[in-house]
């Protein structure tokens, strides 16, 4: 009797274990599918540039560096990356400096209708660099003699990114107690010293975040440089990518994959560098 009961019990346990196992396998299969969905394009990016005949699919590459050699022969490929660095760097610098000053002022000075102003700007900014204002933007740049000038692109992109940057940074500034600054003031620090010694170091993670965000935004922006820059010698990588795509009427997968890899590397490296150097973290003060 007890032997039968024991067997029944072990059967039950075995069945439960099997069910548990199946559930686990199912879960992992699902996770793998999701992962594959996101990983395959990245995997393609890792293999295709080194394949002598890349296709849309993924296969073990027949290893070659010829693609890179061909790309270097393209007169605009490398310069376009340098152009991208200029545009992204310049815009990020302007955005960080102006957004920091504006956010600090908006956080510390009572301006009537401040919040409405911020929300209004945020709403409009998505239009400014968007498709909707293509024509007036071009017209404006033309009147200001900023067609085919990097400065023009930088200014337009800065204008588009500033509201969101101010919005993000204002949160960081608001979270910084005014007593830090007042304390420094009582010790005799000038406004510039307060900015340099206290405010900038305290909101540094916020500045880093906004800087990285601005660079990534400009790096991926196609429309504004395409619109405002005439010749391919000033065009950034995002625009040159488009020319590779249409050369000869169809996608040149060898050049395209190789260029895509070079195009994505700087931004990825920047993320790693910034997060290790500045860290997207905050040195907590005291508990509130």
């Amino acid at each position: 009797m007890s032997a039968v009961a024991d067997r029944a019990r072990t059967d039950d346990a075995a069945r439960a274990a099997a069910r548990h196992m199946l559930a686990r396998i199912g879960r992992y299969v699902f996770l793998c599918l999701v992962l594959a969905f996101f990983a395959l394009p990245l995997l393609w990016l890792a293999t295709a540039p080194f394949d002598d005949t890349p296709t849309i699919g993924i296969s073990l590459p027949r290893f070659t560096l010829d693609n890179f050699r061909t790309l270097l022969d393209n007169p605009y490929a490398l310069t376009s990356l340098v152009n991208s660095v200029w545009l992204a760097g310049g815009t990020a610098l302007l955005v960080v400096v102006f957004a920091a000053l504006a956010a600090y002022a908006l956080s510390r000075v009572r301006v009537p209708g401040r919040d409405a102003l911020l929300y209004g700007l945020l709403l409009l900014s998505s239009i400014v660099t968007g498709t909707a204002t293509m024509v007036p933007l071009f017209e404006l740049a033309f009147r200001l003699n900023l067609i085919d000038s990097r400065l023009g692109v930088i200014l337009v992109l800065t204008g588009g990114l500033l509201p969101a940057a101010i919005f993000i940074l204002k949160d960081f500034m608001d979270a910084t107690p005014t007593s830090y600054e007042e304390s420094a003031r009582v010790f005799g620090a000038s406004p510039l010293q307060i900015m340099r010694h206290i405010v900038v170091p305290v909101v540094r993670p916020g500045l880093a975040t906004v800087g990285v965000w601005a660079v990534a935004n400009v790096w991926g922006n196609f429309l504004v440089p395409f619109l405002l820059l005439r010749g391919p010698d000033k065009a950034p990588a995002a625009v040159i990518m488009y020319t590779l795509y249409t050369e000869g009427g169809q996608a040149d997968l060898r050049l395209l994959s190789t260029f895509s890899l070079l195009y994505s590397l700087p931004v990825a490296l920047m993320f790693v560098f910034v997060s290790s150097r500045y860290g997207f973290r905050f040195h907590g003060g005291i508990k509130r």
């Binding site: 107690p177 007593s179 830090y180 007042e182 304390s183 420094a184 003031r185 009582v186 010790f187 005799g188 620090a189 010694h197 206290i198 170091p201 305290v202 540094r204 040195h283 907590g284 003060g285 005291i286 509130r288």
Partner: peptide, 20 residues
């Protein structure tokens, strides 16, 4: 006079120690 020239020192309620 501005605070820096008054020769006073203030300790704030939250102490205002610079976190960095």
């Amino acid at each position: 006079l501005p605070p820096g020239q008054r020769d006073v020192a203030m300790v704030f309620q939250d102490y205002a120690l610079f976190p960095h």
